[in-house]
Write a protein that binds this DNA or RNA. Structure first.
Lengths: 199, 199
DNA sequence: CTAAGATATGAATAACCTTTCATGTTGTGA
DNA sequence: TCACAACATGAAAGGTTATTCATATCTTAG
């Protein structure tokens, strides 16, 4: 995806650029993309309306820039964490745990990624398809290693995304009475995935 | 939730009301809530701008009305289907199957329900909390009946919602190469939920 | 037939939003 | 110090949108 962002060249420029991005992230989170105007962003950032256009041609481009930052960030973090443990089950567990923890620590990113479905369906579709593809590779390896049953890896990857997204959502919305930390929630989740829920 | 809708009294009025609702459902689905203006709706419906305000005070109220219609519809349909089968496992299976089939047959409703997160967070939260509560009751019964392991029913209900929502999403986005009908996908999903995925 | 309530119209208003641009300021390499 | 590129400003133009309201038409009970 090509993004038409003007990268600033001086320290001052970089600071203003970051100010715009940070302000937008906060506003998108609090009031949503569509309810946030460029005037909103510049006013909250304490800069003039025209300054925005020094760096971004429009709001959508700013949004895409932010989305890509988060995507890169979350994937990098999951890859790092997963590489530190051995065994497919442990890797899956670490991946889900990292995702949920990331969602809790960065509710902004979680919110902004989901919102893409209502900004540009293609962005959303690309994002989850990309995520699924990564999952599939790992799952196929697990099956080869004899650690996992013969399952439809594509379907299972969507199931696992659904599980982690909704458990993250539950924690995020602060719904219900959570017994303990995210790590404990993830342990429970993994037990369920491992053994199933029916007798 | 109180909704400030003026219910029409004559046959003509009812027809116009329905026309507004149907047009809005279609437009919200195709171009999203935020990209749909009231002018859009009235033009597409072939009525005057002012006519809209005979029945709805604003766009948000119309949206809430539509959302409640869909919620009622989907819950009713799941309850009906679930009541026709015996055994907790079969009931869960039927519930998930009905949900996914509903999503496929009514992509409009699926889309509109998710969008609530970006229109009014409370609406979204209420919706899924309500859904979760229903699930929990069923799950508790299953545990009593000895059909299900001792699990955190609240957590499991969110897991099941995540699974069905994302599998529905996958099918909806027409991602990947789906082998067979929704029913077959659901059979696979239920097998996974039943026995877990790890050896 | 007629009065009244229900329904429908669309021009007008006011608010808000994006984007441009002429002008001004700042920082820095030579 | 000076010249120049980078950065910043905010008023103004031009567009879109929500909402109101004076007016008109339809429907039906009596």
């Amino acid at each position: 995806m090509e993004i038409n962002v003007k990268i600033p060249k001086t320290r001052n420029g970089k600071a203003t650029f970051k100010l715009i991005v940070d302000t937008a992230v906060e506003l998108f989170y609090v009031q949503g993309y569509h309810n946030t105007s460029i005037g909103n962003i510049t006013t909250n950032a304490g800069i003039a309306a025209g300054t925005f256009y020094l760096y971004f041609p429009n709001k959508l481009t700013l949004y895409k820039y932010i989305l890509m930052e988060f995507q890169h960030d979350i994937r990098k973090r999951i890859a790092e964490k997963v590489s530190l443990v051995e065994g497919r089950f442990e890797k899956e567990k670490e991946g889900i745990k990292t995702f949920i923890n990331y969602a809790i620590e960065n509710p902004h990113s979680y919110n902004i990624i989901w919102e893409s479905l209502y900004i540009d369906k293609q962005l959303f579709s690309d994002y989850y398809q990309g995520f699924a593809k990564r999952y599939e590779r790992g799952l196929e390896q697990s099956i080869k290693d004899g650690e996992m049953c013969e399952v439809d890896t594509e379907l299972v990857s969507w199931i696992l995304m659904g599980v982690s997204n909704f458990v993250g959502l539950k924690v995020l919305l602060k719904l219900g009475t959570d017994k303990g930390s995210a790590d404990q929630v993830v342990d429970q989740v993994m037990n369920i995935i491992k053994t199933g829920i029916f007798k």
